[in-house]
Simulated scan of single mutants.
Amino acid sequence: MSNFYCKHCGGKQSSISMLTSITCPRHPLGANKGKHALYEGSEKSQYACKNCGSKQSSISMLTSITCPRHPLGANKGKHEPAL
Score class of each variant (00 low, 15 high):
H27L: 06
A82Q: 13
I16C: 05
E40P: 00
Y39K: 07
T66N: 12
G34L: 01
H8F: 02
K55H: 07
S21P: 07
A74Q: 09
E80L: 00
Q56M: 00
K12I: 09
Q13Y: 02
E80C: 01
C49A: 12
K78N: 14
E80P: 00
H79F: 00
G77T: 12
M61D: 15
K50L: 02
P28F: 03
T63F: 03
P71G: 12
I59W: 03
C52K: 09
K35W: 04
K76R: 11
S60N: 15
P25R: 15
G73D: 07
H70N: 02
P81H: 13
H79N: 10
Q13N: 09
H36F: 00
H36P: 04
M18L: 07
S57V: 14
K76L: 06
T66H: 07
E40R: 08
K50N: 10
N32C: 07
S60G: 13
H36Q: 00
K76E: 10
Y47E: 13
L29D: 15
G30D: 05
G10M: 00
P25N: 15
A74V: 09
M1L: 15
K33S: 05
H36M: 01
L83A: 13
K35N: 12
R69K: 13
L29Y: 06
Q13D: 08
G30W: 03
C52R: 05
P81W: 06
K55W: 00
L19S: 07
P81Q: 15
T20M: 06
G41Y: 03
Y39D: 04
K44T: 15
S15T: 12
C9A: 09
S58A: 09
Y47W: 14
G30V: 02
S57M: 15
L29A: 14
C24E: 09
M18T: 08
C52T: 12
K76V: 04
F4V: 14
G11L: 05
S2C: 07
I22P: 01
M61V: 15
G73S: 09
I65S: 06
A31K: 09
K44P: 03
C9I: 05
K7T: 10
Q46A: 13
Q13H: 08
E80Q: 12
C52L: 12
A31Q: 13
E43N: 13
Y5K: 06
